[in-house]
Design a binder for these strands. Sequence first.
DNA 1: CCAGACGTTGTT
DNA 2: GTCTGG
DNA 3: CCAGACGTTGTT
DNA 4: GTCTGG
Length: 223
Amino acid sequence: MCGRFVRKATLEEIAEAFDLDVPGIDLELTPSYNVAPGQRVAAAVCDRGRTLKQFKWGLVPFWAKDEKIGYRMINARAETVAEKPGFKRAFAKRRCIVVADGFYEWQQAGKTKVPHYVHLKSGKPLGFAGLYEHWRSPDGRTLDTCTIITTSANALMRPIHDRMPVILDREACGAWLDPEATDPQILAGLLAPFDPDRMEAYQVGPLVNSPRNDSPECIEPRP
DNA sequence: CCAGACGTTGTT
DNA sequence: GTCTGG
DNA sequence: CCAGACGTTGTT
DNA sequence: GTCTGG
């Protein structure tokens, strides 16, 4: 699955990697080495040009009565996302690319869990396939939320965990964000495990366990 | 028909 | 154990 | 995802 | 809102 990640690239680097229309972007991006559910994440969307917006991580369906449901909607399974009531509408109309530099995955080792950091060999930012929603609370407040889609583990991830986030390369990002794309078969076909030869993973220390810790030490290899 | 859930993960 | 918060 | 709280009353 | 279960 995907429950914690890193976003440290500059806006310029992100814009280059995701072909963003920079003039339309009005967003503060401070690096985070420990982005957790419930926090603000940056995602590319198609909205009269390709831009970057902020969303609270944890999708709140538009029909929800209580925003707390978002804490249980941080991931959506690629296998079922097109049909599940909570995600169906977003899958059809509100797709996004959540921007990251890498992600953490915890490996069960007996009674304990060992965190690993996973990233691209190229060192470039990566994009998670995501969905977003706009929610209005009973008292009139609005909330923009999103979720990250997961798929089965590739060969690199399998020793660590049986699920991983869907990572889209540049071409797939274009297809995923295309508002004209309506064929659910084609869209679902993009949600495949990423090429393991273009990724690497290593063990990190327990600092990352607490979401309160947010420093470059989080991604330092465990000695 | 109405009521109640709507999710993923991991563990048992 | 289960929910909330980060 | 993991960490941390989990409750009410009455008094300061 | 929409689907499932009773």
